[in-house]
Structures are given as structure tokens and as C-alpha cells.
Amino acid sequence: MTAGTRGAPPPATAAAAREGGQARPGTAGAAGPGAPGVLDRLTPARRAALRAECARLADLDDAEFGVRLLAATPTHEGRDPALLRRWAEAAAAFGVGLAADRGTHGPAARVVERDGGLEQLLLARYVSRPAPAVELFTDTLALGEELADLLGWRAWFPPGALRAAAVAHEEAHCLLHRDPALRRALRGRTGHTALRLGRFRIAGHVAGADELTAHGYAGARCGLGRSPLLLTAALASAAGALEEARGQD
């Protein structure tokens, strides 16, 4: 396990002050063990159920999350899961390789912190205009930290690693966005054929492959023990539980 090799980034509250984002001071950093978190709003029974749900998720292998992501991406409806698995593994491996190639210097996209990610079910976002920027949703990140504690996943996702992974993930999108050769290489790696006429073959784009590449890249750059998608899936479950709890209030 290579957890924590990249060192924890500065706490989100300090970063928020630096970037002038819309983070609520105090919430994003409230992730340490024992700190009050939003998951306290759940009943003990619901929290136990959430923990069991996430434990089941942890039992799946990382590629399975890639398969699920691809299956939920339009254009892959009804495709063979074995094919999706092959694509998912290839795209993630491409991201890992990319992380090794790039050394330490990523592109300089501005990092902006925002609130309100849980409402939109967003953790982070890369926008290329007006200027390339990485938006981090601090409430979702804080919930991720809280979850990692609650579930005992700290060995896989050390404190601050999710934020670093989010930055790295969007950095990968930025790399792919700027470099057509890189996109071509990814197409070659997934090896999907869009059209074949005799010996002539056109490599097809696999929708969602760039997303899996970005996750593979982020996992490798930040030395995560598991795919960021595992924590994403857990976050989706937790967000659902919180939504239910809000409905019952």
C-alpha cells in the first residue's frame, strides 16, 4: 500500500481563504476523527445500514466501478459487461501510465472552491472557459473525509487525499483536453473499432474512457489504496441517505 506518499495538501479552509471561493469556513476542514459531521444527522440504524452498504462496495474490485461508470454512460447501453471491463481496465491503466510520465508538473489550472456540491451531486469539475479552472466542492469533499473515517478507509484514503485526487483528476481532463495526441493514444489503448473496411480501421471513441483515465491518473498521483470511484460510490450512497433524512425532517 502506497497510501499518503504525496503528502496531505493544505486544509480546505486555508485554501478557501486563499482562493476566495464560497466555502463555509469550518465545515470543509471538519473531518478529523470525532469532529461533528453531517452524517450525525442520520439515525444510528441508518448509519449502520450505510456502513454495511459501503462495506459491500469495498468488497467489489476496482474495475467493477469502472464497468458501472461505463454502463451508466450513454452509448454503452446493452454492451457486454466483459467488453466494458476490458475498456475500463485499459482506460484506468492509461491514466496510471500518464501519471508516471508526467512527473510532478501538471498544467496550471486555477483551483476554485465552491459550496453546494452535494445538491448537484458534484465533487469537482473542470471548466476550460473563460480560463481553465478546477472547481472543488468543499461540502462533498468534507463528507468524503467524514466517510473515510466512519468506514475505516483511512489506509486507502488518508486525510486530504480526496482533495488532492480531485485536483489531479481534473488535471488529467485538462491534459487530455489540450493534447490531441494523448487522446489518440487513449483511443488506441481502449482498442474500440468504430468502422472496419477490410484492412482499414477507424479507432472509435469510448464514451467515459477519459473519466476512467482521470480516475486512474488521480489514484496513481495521490497514491490512493483504492480507486477514487470506490469513495465516489460510497459518497453517492451517503448523499442518498442524507437526502432521505432531509425528507423525513
Binding site: 469537482a124 473519466e211 465516489t232 448523499a239
Partner: peptide, 22 residues
């Protein structure tokens, strides 16, 4: 420009829209 989101929706098992589409 382009926009790429790290979204929780893609991993949500309850995402009804995705299920319906599939």
C-alpha cells in the same frame, strides 16, 4: 469550452434516470 464533472450520480445505484435509460 468543455466541462468535465466528477459526479456522484454516475456511481449512484439509485440513479433512476440511468436505470430507465439502460
Amino acid at each position: 469550452g468543455v466541462e468535465h464533472a466528477w459526479s456522484l450520480a454516475s456511481m449512484s445505484e439509485r440513479s433512476a434516470g440511468g436505470d430507465r435509460r439502460r
